[in-house]
Amino acid sequence: MAVKQEELNFSRNEQSETTMLPGSFAKAMRTNVIWQFIRFVVINLKMLVVVSKSH
C-alpha cells in the first residue's frame, strides 16, 4: 500500500510534526476549477470590502 504524502511530511522532522496538513480532499478542492471559481468570486468580493473600508 502506498504511503500517504502526509505520513511522509509529518515524519520529516520535529518542526513538521506539530502542524496541520491538508488531506487529499482539501488538496483536490484547491485545484477544482468549479469550486475555485466560486472562491474567486467570494475572495474578490471580500477584498473589495477590505479596499472600500481602507479608503
Partner: peptide, 14 residues
C-alpha cells in the same frame, strides 16, 4: 471577518 487566508487556484487567478 476581513482577515482571512485561503490556498488554491482562486488566489492564483487573482
Amino acid at each position: 471577518d476581513y482577515t482571512f487566508g485561503e490556498i488554491g487556484l482562486a488566489g492564483h487567478w487573482i
